[in-house]
Simulated assay, not measured.
Amino acid sequence: MSKVNVLPILIIVLAGILTGCNENPAENKGSVANVGSTSEVQINAADWPRTFKDGLGKEIVIEAKPKNIAALWYFYPEILVALEEPPASSTDKEYLSSLTYLKGKLDSTEELGDKMSPSIEKIISMNPDLIIATENHEDQYEALEKIAPVITLQTKAIYEDWQYGLRTVAEIIGREDKAEKVIDEMMNEITTGRETLKSIAGETVALIVSWDGKTFNVLGEGNPVYTLASDPEKGLGLTPDQTFTGNNNEFASFEGISTIEADHIFLIGDITKKEALMNNLEQSQVWNSLNAVKKDNVYLMDTSAITGGPLATEYALRNMINSLR
């Protein structure tokens, strides 16, 4: 039987992410905004208007610092909160408000419905001065454009690179200074964590998502949590388990995880349903035969870790360090 450690949930609103331009993420660092002497968040009037080239190659003129933003994809609110400027309205607000690091942060944000089909009527009623969309909103673009300027960003680039996303959104709202501060603080924390976990060098780690204890998604390259765990420069440099013979980033049955030989397993699931989740697992011969389970090295991490945003990254980082050191 595995003793599952419900890791301490440490909330830190010091990171931000988002992306969208066709530029290479590593090259899109943006320029640091001029900060007024009376307030860190004051942007010099000379910074506006500014022209932003979005993920569709469109040049969008932003006349003034956006104050009423409609965010149409799940990672935008997280990024905007990390930049200390929550959106006026957002899709999936109810779900996002349940995430550990967003509880209480979106109280003043209005719900716009499902991220794939936001309510045009509700967006109109909010009278936004800017709409941030994704390529998934192509069918609604014409209607959205009649409401307010629309900036379209590419989901893959944002999801896979929190620094690029943070800098991109910061450029849109004039918070480049805050973005760089957040990145510096986060990278210092990652570097410190990497040094701390050198004590388990060579021990392998697997990251598994399960909603029901019956199907499993073994995370691999291209997933931000995997990058955080294994990348030697951007992450903690942990040794990933290479024995898994199935397809990474795809859900499979119990038998699909039988080849995992990791010394440590992070099981990512809904910790509010942990009893049902673990009950299903502990009845499985396959699960109980896994190396990490036998060693009692299984750590339960809430699904708050998997959005790919800066706050999710911070949450996962703290959990990994606290579990493994």
Rank of each mutant, 00 (worst) to 15 (best):
residue 21 C to V: 00
residue 307 T to S: 15
residue 51 T to P: 03
residue 239 T to H: 06
residue 166 L to R: 04
residue 17 I to K: 12
residue 40 E to V: 08
residue 3 K to H: 13
residue 199 S to G: 11
residue 204 T to V: 08
residue 284 S to V: 09
residue 44 N to F: 08
residue 136 N to G: 12
residue 231 D to E: 03
residue 118 P to K: 01
residue 47 D to G: 06
residue 322 N to T: 15
residue 256 G to F: 01
residue 203 E to C: 09
residue 147 I to L: 03
residue 150 V to S: 04
residue 101 Y to K: 07
residue 36 G to I: 04
residue 124 I to E: 03
residue 65 K to E: 14
residue 167 R to C: 06
residue 70 A to S: 10
residue 324 L to S: 05
residue 150 V to W: 03
residue 256 G to K: 01
residue 266 F to I: 15
residue 68 N to L: 08
residue 202 G to P: 04
residue 189 E to M: 13
residue 169 V to S: 02
residue 174 G to T: 00
residue 154 Q to W: 07
residue 20 G to T: 02
residue 242 Q to P: 12
residue 21 C to I: 00
residue 231 D to T: 09
residue 34 N to K: 09
residue 306 I to F: 11
residue 9 I to C: 12
residue 220 G to F: 06
residue 119 S to Q: 00
residue 287 W to E: 06
residue 171 E to V: 05
residue 302 D to E: 11
residue 32 V to Q: 08
residue 137 H to N: 11
residue 111 E to G: 10
residue 217 N to G: 11
residue 16 G to A: 15
residue 94 E to W: 08
residue 148 A to C: 00
residue 137 H to M: 09
residue 307 T to F: 14
residue 79 I to T: 12
residue 25 P to R: 00
residue 275 E to R: 04
residue 66 P to W: 01
residue 280 N to G: 04
residue 220 G to V: 03
residue 233 E to G: 08
residue 323 S to L: 13
residue 58 K to Q: 10
residue 104 G to F: 02
residue 260 I to E: 02
residue 317 L to C: 13
residue 320 M to F: 13
residue 119 S to K: 00
residue 38 T to D: 14
residue 228 L to T: 05
residue 47 D to S: 14
residue 138 E to V: 06
residue 9 I to E: 15
residue 242 Q to D: 15
residue 45 A to P: 03
residue 249 N to S: 05
residue 144 L to W: 00
residue 212 D to H: 02
residue 238 L to W: 10
residue 170 A to V: 03
residue 290 L to C: 07
residue 237 G to A: 09
residue 98 S to D: 14
residue 62 I to S: 06
residue 12 I to H: 13
residue 314 E to W: 12
residue 149 P to D: 03
residue 75 F to T: 14
residue 39 S to H: 07
residue 163 Q to A: 11
residue 274 K to F: 07
residue 314 E to M: 15
residue 289 S to G: 12
residue 189 E to R: 14
residue 71 A to D: 05
residue 251 F to I: 02
residue 39 S to R: 05
residue 235 G to E: 09
residue 240 P to G: 09
residue 140 Q to E: 11
residue 183 I to E: 12
residue 286 V to L: 10
residue 125 S to E: 05
residue 210 S to H: 02
residue 308 G to I: 06
residue 137 H to Q: 12
residue 100 T to E: 14
residue 31 S to N: 06
residue 114 D to K: 07
residue 320 M to N: 07
residue 278 M to E: 11
residue 273 K to C: 12
residue 243 T to C: 13
residue 25 P to V: 00
